[in-house]
């Protein structure tokens, strides 16, 4: 796709989604006011709880509108200049005031199913988590709670992942689970790298996480593909299939071999996988050749 192709349409669609989210926020806000008035009249706690829930919901919708607007502005600006197509997650990073952010969706066994990153170093960090099987997103989805580490704590908390992350220049990382009351398990996590001071643990951050959960899942505008920004690591999975045949092992083991090779050689997982798929690199029983 060249800049301009369907670009105006995508920008318009993002503005429309933003407007719809603002309208939803206003409706929730109005209902909340009604319940608050009712609660004041009757002194009744369920009304207070309901009003609070509606206010939280309104805040999530408003945050969702902010994310859509940030995306719309970026795509509009990109249409007039060179460079890479803006990702939805880069708008999320902007709203969070973080260097970069990454969203990870996981299966019931907590394995990464798909990732979406705003750019570097988040992208590299998610690959490191995928390769090493430890890191903030994994902890956030496992314990269904907020994870935060900065400075040396990064390296002590994750002995393999930590040093690799700080080597990327990251000084602070946080991850929050994407959770809903309806789900029996956590769907994924949002990781933020070098966030602005005070973001983690703030109401605004909770709202962004809530907005993203809805955006991936339950909103009328829900799109797990994040408008084309989700990476399924297709090449990596294809390469795992090929290596399993060449080496004569299970696909899971082949995937582990590829991850180990990429990590020890310091090669991006995707580049290594593409080389395997293209036939430029072959794994054999004896090792790669």
């Amino acid at each position: 796709m060249t800049p301009g192709d369907g670009n105006a349409g995508q920008v318009a669609a993002a503005w429309r989604r933003a407007a719809a989210a603002r309208a939803r926020a206003e409706r929730a806000e109005k209902s909340a006011q009604r319940y608050e008035a009712w609660a004041a009249e009757t002194g009744h706690t369920p009304h207070v709880d309901l009003a609070a829930a509606l206010r939280r919901s309104a805040a999530c919708h408003r945050s969702s509108a902010d994310l859509q607007e940030a995306f719309a502005r970026r795509v509009a600006a990109w249409g007039q200049g060179p460079g890479e197509r803006p990702r939805f997650m880069s708008g999320v990073a902007e709203v969070c005031g973080a260097e970069s952010v990454a969203l990870t969706l996981v299966d019931a066994r907590n394995s990464q199913l798909a990732v979406a990153a705003s750019g570097e170093p988040a992208r590299a960090a998610q690959d490191l988590e995928f390769m090493l099987g430890e890191g903030p997103s994994r902890d956030a989805t496992t314990h269904r709670g907020l994870v935060f580490a900065s400075g040396e704590a990064i390296e002590t908390r994750w002995p393999c992942f930590g040093p690799a992350l700080t080597a990327l220049g990251v000084r602070e990382v946080a991850a929050a689970p994407l959770d809903t009351a309806a789900s029996s398990r956590c769907l994924g996590a949002l990781a933020v790298f070098d966030p602005r001071p005070g973001l983690v643990g703030s109401r605004a951050f909770d709202d962004v996480v809530g907005a993203l959960t809805r955006l991936v899942l339950c909103d009328p505008d829900a799109d797990p593909e994040l408008y084309g920004g989700t990476d399924h690591r297709d090449s990596v999975q294809q390469a795992a299939g090929m290596v399993s045949v060449h080496v004569g092992c299970r696909v899971d083991d082949a995937l582990a071999l590829i991850k180990a090779r990429a990590f020890t050689r310091g090669v991006p997982l995707d580049a290594l996988s593409r080389a395997i798929v293209a036939g430029d690199l072959t794994f054999t029983r004896e090792g790669p050749s």
Binding site: D234, Q238, A240, S244
Partner: peptide
């Protein structure tokens, strides 16, 4: 709840298809 299940199945299914492409290609 239904949507969460559907999304997960779609993602897992995509994984299997990409792996199968690799197996068959090799």
């Amino acid at each position: 709840r239904t949507q969460t299940g559907q999304m997960e199945r779609a993602l897992i299914s995509r994984l299997a298809i990409e792996q199968a492409k690799g197996v068959l290609a090799a």
